[in-house]
């Protein structure tokens, strides 16, 4: 699981061009969106949908659950694991 989270962080940095961040800067349980966390926005949410589709073959059919899934690296990893 921790390996998946590290991989996910690398993919997030790459997909969102977070050029000033390293894996160590992204905490597993920190919110990804909003001022408290990384400060990501709605375009980044779309990028996450693309990321899950292209790297893990997972499609998010219900946009309402996306908010929960994309809350943190922990929640994204849990979701990916649950789809295996």
């Amino acid at each position: 699981m921790s390996e998946l989270k590290e991989k996910l962080k690398t993919q997030i940095i790459e997909q969102l061009n977070l050029e000033d961040l390293t894996i160590a800067d992204i905490k597993n349980d920190s919110p990804l969106f909003g001022d408290e966390g990384l400060g990501l926005d709605s375009i980044d949410a779309l990028e996450f949908i693309v990321l899950l589709d292209s790297y893990y073959g997972i499609k998010i059919d219900d946009p309402a659950i996306a908010k929960e899934i994309f809350h943190s690296v922990d929640s994204m990893a849990d979701f990916i694991e649950s789809k295996k």
């Binding site: 997909q15 693309v50 589709d53 292209s54 499609k59």
Partner: peptide
């Protein structure tokens, strides 16, 4: 090259 069906929005926009 995309393997999934969804395209990245940023480069398109």
């Amino acid at each position: 090259t995309v393997e999934g069906e969804i395209l990245s929005p940023t480069a398109f926009i």
